[in-house]
Amino acid sequence: MSNLRRNSLTDWIADRYQNRFWAQLVSLLGPSLGWMALFFIGPLLIMLVFSFAKRGVYGEVNYAFSFDNYLQSLKSIYILIYWRSIWIAVVTTLLCLLISYPIAYYIAIKAPKKWRSVLLVLAVVPFWTSFLIRTYAWILLLRTEGLINNFLIQADLINVPLKLLYTDWAVLIGLVYGELPFMILPLYASIEKLDTRLLEAAMDLGANRISTFFQVTVPLTKVGILTGIILVFIPSLGCFVTSDLLGGSKSIMIGNLIQNQFIQRNQPFGSALSFLLTALVLILLWIGLRAGAKPE
């Protein structure tokens, strides 16, 4: 009898504790989760439904289940666009990596200690200015009678202005410029943790500079490299403003294609394209994370 009472008492306490635990947890986590569920996951789910619907004559949405949008998105002209987008995103990512590694390495290891944090902040400050404005600045530099051409002509290096603006190069420059900090920061974070004694050890054991770099430094900073690649690749893949402003709207990327579906009032097709883009990103991310997780 007393045993039973004691049991029910502990149960009661545990219960009460449990309820409070849940009440607190829900009231803390609830608002954020609710907001995300309603205004982030909700829209994505509706988009998923839309991607199986059909466009009406005047752009209204007819709910009829079909895979037409996905089939349409496999047409060769669209494949060309995806290919171009992926290609540009890959080159952007590689250029970012190539440019960022030396500077991140310098800041993290070679620069005088007291300067390190200043140098890092300096590398990130441009990222805090409006990205539209940064893109606009490049228009000023790249146009036919822009600063770069004027300088080159005055320095007698060229006679005829170079074609800089409205080329794929201009788009690449704009993207690299915009995404660079996303590469520098993670690289810095992982190079900073690098134990330089390991590099000395490798050299002492007879490795040359290049093999030390590729066989010791790179593997040890792999996490930073992968994080940087992911952070740069995703926005480059979905970009549409840069290709508009610096590429002269000549060649469109997936981002522009999706944007055009909104303007051409084909929401179902735009939804399908959005899902393909998201799926592409998730698959690449998964591959990247697996590649990163393997050695551990």
Partner: peptide
């Protein structure tokens, strides 16, 4: 639930904008 909070960083902005206006 916490992976949900990674989504805004992973999903391209254009997709978020498009989905939100449909919603």
């Amino acid at each position: 639930f916490s992976p949900i909070f990674y989504l805004p960083i992973i999903i391209p902005e254009i997709v978020i904008g498009f989905a939100t206006v449909i919603f």
